[in-house]
């Protein structure tokens, strides 16, 4: 069996930042493995540890910088990685969900996995849509926001819990092959061990261009354009207490006593 896990390197913004053009200036961004994809990788690796002959392959659309993140996924137990990138992708004006799903679909076609795991959302763009879009493109069944997975490999069914709002979970049987979007908390992602990190260096990491995966630059044309990025006007009018920690703590304490929520 083969499991494909999509892995995104996401940008995180420092506390103080500046905007340049229509994005946050590069020096205020830090990069990391997307939180939700960390859980997806762990889920796949756990399945591969419990069953015979399961290969875990990661797929990433991202520049060379993303290899650090990809190696992290390999260090945690994925077997090999595919990274899709070239100059055309680099210069695409807006890489929308549909285009990314198209690229990932081409990887799926090449890899022919039995199961695809994605994150529920990417922490930076938060589209929350790539997994289900991909499923529809490749004709797989799917389930979004999965926080429990029990795979019946022989029966060709994934028994999942979908985490709905308000502490309710939906129990669903999904026919495979399927795409599941994985919710945080489904497992406990491991830390990469030193041994894992060393091994990851020699695991295959294939870089593929659009041409390699049989697509041309047309797929990058988007009907969407990001026209602005700005700090929202704060709707808040919080009273912020100033001073050192002792002073501010004193002010908060006084407030809580005045309110009558704390005695003493």
């Amino acid at each position: 069996m083969k499991i494909l896990v999509t892995v995104k390197e996401v940008a995180e913004v420092e506390d103080e930042f500046e905007i340049s053009g229509d994005d946050i200036a590069e020096q205020y961004l830090e990069y990391d493995l997307n939180e939700w994809d960390d859980y997806a990788v762990e889920e796949a690796v756990q399945i591969s540890e419990e069953a015979e002959d399961v290969e875990v392959v990661t797929a990433t659309i991202g520049p060379e910088r993303a290899e650090e993140t990809i190696r992290m996924a390999l260090a945690k137990g994925a077997d090999r990685a595919v990274r899709v990138w070239d100059d055309d992708i680099e210069s695409a004006s807006y890489l929308d969900v549909e285009a990314k799903a198209e690229l990932l679909a081409a990887v799926v076609e090449e890899e022919d996995p039995d199961l695809v795991l994605t994150g529920v959302q990417a922490g930076d763009e938060s589209n929350g849509a790539t997994g289900v879009t991909l499923a529809e493109k490749i004709g797989f069944e799917w389930a979004a926001v999965v926080n429990q997975l029990d795979l019946d490999i022989e029966g060709g069914v994934a028994n999942v819990h979908r985490e709905l709002e308000g502490g309710v979970e939906e129990l669903t049987e999904v026919e495979s092959p399927a795409v599941l979007t994985i919710q945080s908390g489904i497992n406990e992602p491991r830390y990469a061990s030193l041994r894992g990190i060393r091994q990851a260096q020699s695991k295959p990491l294939d870089v593929q261009t659009l041409d390699d995966i049989g697509l041309d630059a047309d797929v990058l044309e988007s009907p969407l354009a990001q026209t602005d990025l700005y700090e929202p006007e704060s709707e808040g009018d919080a009273t912020v207490w100033n001073g050192d920690a002792e002073e501010t703590a004193g002010q908060l304490a006084e407030f809580l006593r005045d309110k009558g929520v704390v005695e003493g």
Binding site: A11, E12, V13, F17, I19, D22, I24, G123, D124, E125, S126, L224, A225, Q226, T227, D228, L229, Y230, E231, P232
Partner: peptide, 10 residues
């Protein structure tokens, strides 16, 4: 975007 730190128009 970015956990609500900025807004974008599409």
């Amino acid at each position: 975007q970015y956990g609500g730190k900025v807004e974008t128009t599409i």
